[in-house]
Every structure is written in C-alpha cells, then in structure tokens.
C-alpha cells in the first residue's frame, strides 16, 4: 500500500508539474492515469519511483517516506518498483536475456553485478518471464534486431523480473502500433491479477483506460482532478478533464 501526501513538483525552470496530490494505492489495484500531455501524468509516475525528486510532500511505502531516500536505501526501494518506458529504454547491443537480467541488478553487490554473476534462480526467473511475454525463441537475440512490440515485451519482462510490488508504465503503447495495445495491457493485467501487484499505467486513449482499469486518476495542469472507479467517469467529467485542450491547439 502506497500513500501519497501533498506531493508537488516544480522544475528548475519554474514550471509547476504537480500540485498537492493526495491519494492511496492499495495492493493489487489497476489504475489508469489520464490527462492531456503536459498535465503531469509522467512526472507523477516518475516521482513515484524517484526518477524525479519531488519538491514537496511524502510518498509513504510500508511506513517509510521514500520521497526522502538516498543512496543504497533508494536503490533498495527502486528494485521494488518496476518502470516501463514509452521508448522501451533497452540496451540495444545486449541480448534479450541480458536485458531482462539487468532487472535483477538491484539485488546484487556491485562486484557480482559488474561481473554478471547472476544466480541460477534468477536466470530461471528471467527465462520464465521471457516465456510469459512470448519471446522464448528470442532469448539470445540482440534486442536491436527485434520489432518495437517485441522490444516493449522485453522491457515488461525486465520489470517483472524485478519481482516488484508496484509497476509503473509511462505510456507503454504510445510508440507502438495501436493493435499491440491489447497485448501490452493484457500482459500487465495478467501480472496484476496473478501477483496482486499494483499497476499504474499512463494512457491517453480513454477507451483503453475504461476497458482495463478498475480506477482512474485524471490530471489537469498538475492537479489531480478526478480519482474514482471507472463506472462513474461520464461524459461531463471527461470534458472537464480534457478542458483546455482546444486552447492548447
């Protein structure tokens, strides 16, 4: 369970990305985060595993405020929160297996990590998740020879191999063919149901959000303007969430 209290983020150039965000994420929740681009969705996700440092507020995970963590303690927290990126962020010149195993690096000492001395259990774990995302044939293929959809599945396997308690996915389908959306979201949904792990997905296609998520978070200009179950999200609310989109054009 994660409690976010008064979370705010102001960038060095003065841009206010998040203002006073308060919410609770119970284990096993599947949450879609919606809003216009620039509304603060990405910053919110990135704050949750500290790719961005929050300017104000607290993020309480298991009684610890992770917003203040540094060094080794921060690394220990991060391995419990898997992150999936829009641009996959794989290491192009490594194989599928090597990429997926980097998800385990947070559990190893520096020397073991540098030498790549992964335990047999972790290799089996990585292989299982590679099979789960349907790439068992490609284990020893360099990822730069895979298609975009396959690469994103490698990235998902990497995040799952972390055995996280939370998965954060920042627009995971935005760089892919729209037909692949169901594959990606289906994988995340399965994992969420089988392991009771909370998943937060940034989505800008609202139909997909309604189809997969139990709960919707909506941001507008850095503020959390809606937080509730999918069924009460009606047209009027949607309009409010996307208000200002014409001005932006």
């Amino acid at each position: 369970m994660i409690e976010v209290k008064n979370l705010g983020k102001t960038f060095d150039d003065g841009t206010v990305a998040l203002k006073d965000v308060n919410l609770t994420i119970p284990d096993g929740d599947f949450i879609a985060v919606i809003g216009l681009s620039g509304a603060g969705k990405s910053t919110f996700l990135r704050c949750l595993n500290r790719l961005e440092n929050p300017s104000t507020g607290e993020i309480i995970v298991d009684g610890v405020d992770v917003a203040k963590l540094r060094g080794r303690a921060l690394q220990r927290y991060r391995r419990t929160a898997g992150f999936i990126f829009q641009q996959f962020n794989l290491v192009d010149r490594l194989t599928v297996m090597e990429n997926v195993l980097t998800g385990r690096l947070g559990y190893y000492s520096t020397i073991q990590g540098v030498l790549g001395l992964y335990s047999e259990r972790d290799e089996i774990l990585a292989r299982d998740y590679i099979r789960m995302v349907g790439l068992d044939e490609k284990e020893n293929t360099r990822v730069d020879s895979l298609s975009g959809g396959q690469q994103q599945r490698v990235a998902i396997a990497r995040a799952m191999t972390q055995e996280p308690k939370l998965i954060l996915a920042d627009e995971p389908m935005a760089s892919l063919d729209p037909r692949l959306s169901d594959v990606i979201l289906g994988l995340l949904k399965d994992y969420n149901e089988k392991n009771n792990v909370a998943v937060l997905v940034n989505i800008h296609v609202i139909e997909l959000a309604k189809r997969y998520a139990k709960r919707i978070l909506a941001f507008n200009k850095g503020e959390l303007v809606f937080d509730g179950p999918v069924d009460i999200l009606d047209d009027a609310l949607e309009e409010e969430i996307y208000s200002g989109s014409l001005e932006m054009l």
Partner: peptide, 27 residues
Amino acid sequence: GPIEALEAAGASGTNVVRWAIFPQVAP
C-alpha cells in the same frame, strides 16, 4: 534511456556504467 531504466531498477552507479553505458560505447 537505458541509464534511466537501470537506475529505475535499483542498479548501483557502477552497474549502470557496466550494463547501460559500456555496451553502448564499446564498439
């Protein structure tokens, strides 16, 4: 990107250099 991904997985600085930077620059 890969640097960020490995940091997000909790890898230490040295491991980020070894697994995210070195493979990119070696050739």
